[in-house]
Design a binder for these strands. Structure first.
Lengths: 124, 124
DNA sequence: CATAATATCGTACATTTGTACAAGCTGTCA
DNA sequence: TGACAGCTTGTACAAATGTACGATATTATG
């Protein structure tokens, strides 16, 4: 079930889309509230971003009362796959190992986590 | 030894900067040749990107004959740290675990790699 | 030394991105 | 049912991004 090719996501759009996934269904308000404290952007801005996400096909909405309730129209896996792929290409020429290494060294990953990962890697 | 706050890198700039690191010292030509086959952009475009990287402080250059030889002015670690951090924030709300998981499941990581990572994680 | 070849520089420009105001709907509550 | 609060829509706009042409400078070459 291969997905259609969707237009690229801008960084901010990605951020908003993540929140939509996290909330499952969300109004503009909901998204605003869920924004990390460090990253406060205006209601109107979030609106525009959601509009653009909809135009690009990443979310849809349904009307509930006077509010629009947005929900993702694509599986996060799909977007993650592309995003990680692009990121890896750009910063590491596509090789995932250096990224893993970086995360292992600096990202608070502990031995237990790695054990779990090992199981995952083994399974597939 | 904390680094100055450098302006943000655009995706394309990041890509070019990576090649400069990889080549250590590089002319515009060198960078062009090193571009992945899939991603051919014009000489002039690479030039502009290098110019912008220099203006932003990420690279410097020295003249050799008629050619400019560019070289990185910042340690890759620094840029990687910021890039990975931003990426993580945007796509995973800052949590590195899901990314590790994704890489373990889909990125061609094998048990041996994981062993190495474990050692790294343990060391720090 | 004149010229061809090769680089760089200045400049340009269409898009995309981030951000937001103002005006117009639409339920809701007194 | 009329006014209000809350939403959406349309529109705007500066800055960043991706891409590149044309003019100019410099080196090597015959």
């Amino acid at each position: 079930m291969t997905q259609k090719k969707l237009p690229a996501l801008s960084p901010s759009e990605t951020e908003i889309l993540r929140l939509v996934w996290q909330l499952d269904k969300a109004t503009v308000q909901d998204v605003c509230n869920k924004l990390p404290a460090k990253r406060k952007i205006a209601y109107a801005t979030v609106q525009t971003l959601l509009r653009r996400l909809e135009k690009k096909g990443y979310v849809k909405h349904r009307i509930r009362g006077k509010a629009h309730v947005f929900f993702a129209a694509v599986k996060s896996e799909h977007v993650i796959k592309r995003s990680v792929g692009d990121f890896l290409d750009r910063l590491f020429g596509g090789d995932p190992i250096p990224l893993m290494q970086y995360l292992a060294e600096h990202g608070k990953i502990n031995a237990g986590d790695i054990e779990k990962l090992k199981r995952l890697a083994g399974k597939k």
